[in-house]
């Protein structure tokens, strides 16, 4: 955990001329699982989109380690046109775009990685079906399979578990653990503090225009507070995440 995957120095993020999060300075160690937490509208997505390069930096400096330039970004709302007539297999194959470009054929090696990504996400049985027939949870699995294909060293996932059921969440969470084992860095926006406590060693809290990186153990306790049953140690977290 020595090298930093991502370093932000005095970064301001926002869009439309408004700064949402200001003066962010932090260093994310390579291979870390980072939970991005905060209230709705605090600027979690804005910060993630800025790191992903979807939004320009409004101020400050961002540095990514060399391999981390290969990024996989999963936006919160899928922009997938589900009525477009392609199969699950073809959808997942999009993840190989960077390797194949406009003309190259799907090599046996790429086909193999597509098959393996489908297997790891439990989609093998439906791989020939049009994406229009997938349930919301299955589509999310397919988006994860496509991420696997992208072979990114840093993964930015914006609320990947919104609207998916428990078994799907557990399956996707296992993929994130797998990426952690392969020393890939993941930043995941989520709201389930119990999950954060169990599986993420760092928290990027976004609150009131500020963002900072804190070890999860300092933010969350094992034992819920007697007052409201929350495992958050700090008031702002309790307030921010009271659903």
């Amino acid at each position: 955990m020595s090298a930093s995957a991502l370093t932000l120095t005095d970064v301001s993020a926002g869009y439309g001329g408004h700064i949402t999060v200001a003066d962010v300075s932090l260093a994310v160690p390579a291979g870390a699982r980072v939970a991005v937490i905060g209230a709705n509208g605090a600027g979690k997505s804005t910060l993630l989109r800025t790191i992903a390069g979807e939004l320009p930096l409004l101020a400050g400096e961002m540095r990514r380690c060399e391999t981390c330039a290969r990024m996989g970004y999963l936006p919160q709302t899928a922009t997938v046109d589900r009525r477009f007539p392609i199969s699950v297999y073809e959808f997942v194959a999009m993840g190989a775009w960077q390797r194949m470009g406009v003309f190259r054929r799907l090599s046996p090696a790429v086909r193999q990685s597509i098959d393996s990504a489908l297997a790891r996400t439990g989609l093998t049985a439906v791989s020939r079906r049009p994406i229009a027939t997938l349930s919301g949870g299955q589509l999310q699995r397919a988006r994860f399979a496509r991420l696997i294909l992208q072979d990114a060293a840093m993964l930015l996932l914006d609320e990947p578990f919104a609207g998916v059921d428990r078994p799907t969440r557990d399956a996707l969470m296992q993929l994130i653990d797998g990426w952690h084992a392969q020393r890939r860095t993941t930043l995941v926006v989520l709201h389930d503090l119990e999950l954060v406590r169990q599986r993420f060693e760092l928290c990027l809290t976004v609150d009131d225009g500020h963002a900072q990186l804190t070890p999860t153990a300092e933010l969350l306790t094992v034992r819920p507070t007697p007052a409201d049953g929350s495992i958050a140690r700090h008031d702002f977290l309790r307030n921010a995440l009271r659903a």
């Binding site: 992903a52 390069g53 979807e54 970004y73 936006p75 899928a78 922009t79 997938v80 046109d81 477009f84 392609i86 959808f91 999009m94 775009w97 960077q98 994406i131 496509r146 992208q150």
Partner: peptide
């Protein structure tokens, strides 16, 4: 099929 994906990639 997914305009944002192509942009990001």
């Amino acid at each position: 099929a997914d305009p944002a994906f192509l942009r990001q990639a």
